[in-house]
Design a protein around this nucleic acid. Structure first.
Lengths: 236, 236
DNA sequence: GTCTATAACCGGATAGAC
DNA sequence: GTCTATCCGGTTATAGAC
């Protein structure tokens, strides 16, 4: 999944120079406008050498992505430690995330372009992304666990996934948001956190139990099918 | 948006030969595996000539896409003419659409990859896609109008957009669905049509009016902001 | 074995002659 | 409208250097 780590000290330094050069160029002139020859030049290596460390240009971008993810996780930890209340936690997590990724709005479009390809290992539903997907889901399990909101048992099992999907939706929205300061996305988060919280509370209402059970059943079916698709021989 | 139509009869024929060659090759060996040289060869023209008619390889694919859209519209008309009842109409529309696009699942990934790029004119939220987006929304306005379901006034104005978004979501799911016969997507449609219908009916419940109004207000805000983003000088 | 460099290849795209 | 020749940039083959 990751590139094989360099074995020697010098190798690690070269690798870092390449990443550094790439990020500077991507940032200053954009991903598509930066050629691998540019990157290699700036890093003071030959093209072939750059390819020794990164099998493709895209993987160079991915280095950034990983870094970003780590920073999001750090920024969010604080919210999870202090906030109680589901709504505040959800909103806080999303807003923090937004703060961290905002400076990279420009790349994100490129990242997303490749993530959208179902054949790409970078797409969030791929086998290769399993670890990151599970981290994402775990984050929302935490958002829920740390709050005092009551969630009906059948829904509780599926809600983290659902919230993770919602997170993906917010990011998708953000990518397309061209308003200054990403005003629309902020508005979306501000308002939708409250709505989601209400919906969750509503789902606990006994009057709505039949509807809820139906929805949960659908989710379970899709999840089960997904597992079957990933593992074509469930008996083995 | 579209390539300039050929001016002469011969031009039109050449153009057709190119499209034809491209589609055959895309279908038999896939988009990425087909080179423009292949296409030109099979069409019996020079590469440069192919580019005279299609400014890019991607636009060749887009020819397919348009065709597909027209066929979806045709396939769906029948459902709209016969079915009453919101749920049946919604389910019918989605299932018909699925039937039409199923043979092209393979390309769709490629189409989607480019559609996902916010900078691409092909992405469904771009200005260039406005016409198609509005057609899509109009379709769901029709789905609603032809049924006897009562929708509260404030929601009625936004529901078609919402259903169109749901449609996008289903297609996104379909693209990632690798089960035989697209079983998962069919299950999703089968079950979610009923759920959506129930939710709409639920939204009419006076007890839920505050929640509904809040949701609608959010939607309106986002839509208004969207207009502002598209037209940066609302006063002019 | 780890790393680096040079010289290609390949395919999308374009220039410009006819 | 059509062609040939060429560019350009991602990627790879491969020969060596440490």
């Amino acid at each position: 999944m990751t590139e094989p780590a360099p074995k020697t000290r010098k190798g690690a330094e070269t690798r870092d120079r390449i990443v550094q050069a790439a990020l500077e160029l991507f940032e200053s002139r954009g991903y598509d406008e930066t050629t691998m020859r540019d990157v290699a030049d700036r890093a003071g290596v030959a093209v072939g050498n750059a390819y020794y460390y990164f099998r493709s240009k895209e993987l160079l971008l991915q280095a950034y992505y990983r870094e970003l993810n780590a920073r999001v996780a750090a920024a969010v930890a604080d919210v999870l430690a202090t906030e109680r209340g589901f709504e505040a936690r959800l909103r806080g997590v999303l807003l923090r995330k937004l703060d961290v990724i905002e400076p990279y709005h420009r790349f994100s479009a490129v990242l997303f372009r490749t993530a959208a390809d179902p054949a790409s290992p970078q797409n969030p539903f791929s086998d290769e992304s399993r670890a990151m997907r599970e981290d994402g889901i775990a984050l929302y399990r935490d958002v829920l666990a740390g709050s005092r909101t009551k969630v009906p048992g059948d829904l509780a099992a599926r809600l983290p996934e659902l919230l993770w999907t919602f997170d993906l939706g917010v990011v998708l929205f953000w990518i397309h948001d061209r308003t200054p300061g990403r005003r629309r996305t902020r508005a979306l988060i501000e308002h939708s956190a409250g709505l989601v919280a209400r919906l969750v509370r509503l789902a606990a209402n006994p009057l709505l139990a039949p509807l809820r059970r139906r929805a949960v059943r659908l989710l379970e079916e899709l999840a089960a099918d997904g597992a079957a698709a990933a593992d074509p021989s469930p008996g083995a």
